[in-house]
Amino acid sequence: TFVALYDYESRTETDLSFKKGERLQIVNNTEGDWWLAHSLTTGQTGYIPSNYVAP
């Protein structure tokens, strides 16, 4: 799992909003700078900017 370093507000319907400190499970990280992730807090799935999270 990864932890959010910053808050992120989604800009498209495929993005995932999250708050700093939220735990995220990475589903697919082969898309370059945008990873498909599942929030362990909200249960939602969407794309996140990879530079906003850390292991």
Rank of each mutant, 00 (worst) to 15 (best):
K20I: 07
T45Q: 09
N29C: 10
V53E: 02
N29E: 09
R23N: 13
F18H: 01
Y6C: 08
T1R: 06
T30M: 13
D33V: 11
Y52I: 06
E9N: 10
I26D: 01
Y6E: 07
E31T: 14
P49M: 07
A4N: 01
W35F: 06
A37L: 02
D33P: 12
E9G: 05
D7Q: 04
I26V: 11
Q44F: 11
A54V: 14
L36S: 03
F2M: 09
Y8S: 02
F2A: 05
P55L: 13
I48F: 03
S50L: 04
E22D: 15
E31S: 14
L36P: 01
V27F: 13
G21T: 02
Y47A: 03
L24C: 02
V3M: 07
L16C: 04
I48Q: 00
F18S: 01
S17H: 05
N29D: 13
G46S: 01
S17T: 10
I26R: 05
R11C: 10
N28K: 10
L16P: 03
L16H: 02
W35R: 02
N51H: 14
N29Q: 14
T12P: 02
L40P: 09
D15C: 08
H38L: 15
Y8P: 00
N28F: 09
T45N: 07
Q44H: 11
K20W: 04
Y6M: 11
D7V: 02
E22A: 03
E22N: 04
E13P: 14
L5Q: 05
F18N: 00
V27C: 10
D15I: 10
G43Q: 06
T30A: 13
W34S: 08
S39D: 04
G43N: 09
W35I: 09
D33Y: 15
F2Y: 15
T42N: 05
S39Y: 01
W34Y: 13
A37R: 00
L24I: 07
S39C: 03
E9Y: 12
A4F: 01
V3F: 09
N29L: 13
E9P: 05
Y47W: 15
L16Q: 03
S17L: 03
H38Q: 14
P55G: 07
G32A: 14
P49V: 02
F18D: 00
H38K: 15
T12W: 13
V53C: 03
F2E: 01
G46N: 01
L24Q: 00
S10E: 05
N51L: 10
S17Q: 07
R23E: 15
T41L: 14
P49I: 04
T1M: 13
W34Q: 08
F2G: 02
L36N: 02
V3A: 04
E9C: 09
T30I: 10
A37E: 00
G21E: 04
L5H: 03
Q44M: 14
I26L: 07
Q44D: 08
Y47K: 06
L5R: 05
T1K: 06
Q44E: 10
A4I: 03
A37Y: 01
T12D: 11
D7T: 07
F2V: 12
I26F: 04
N28Y: 09
L5V: 06
I48L: 05
T30D: 13
I48W: 00
G43S: 05
I26G: 02
T14H: 14
K20R: 11
E22K: 00
G46P: 00
W34E: 05
R11N: 13
T41N: 10
K20A: 13
A37G: 05
N28I: 10
S39Q: 04
S10V: 04
P49S: 04
L40E: 08
T1F: 15
V27D: 07
F18T: 02
E22F: 01
L36T: 04
L40Y: 08
N51R: 13
T45E: 08
G46T: 01
W35A: 04
E13T: 12
N28C: 09
K19E: 06
I26Y: 03
S10W: 04
E31W: 12
E31G: 14
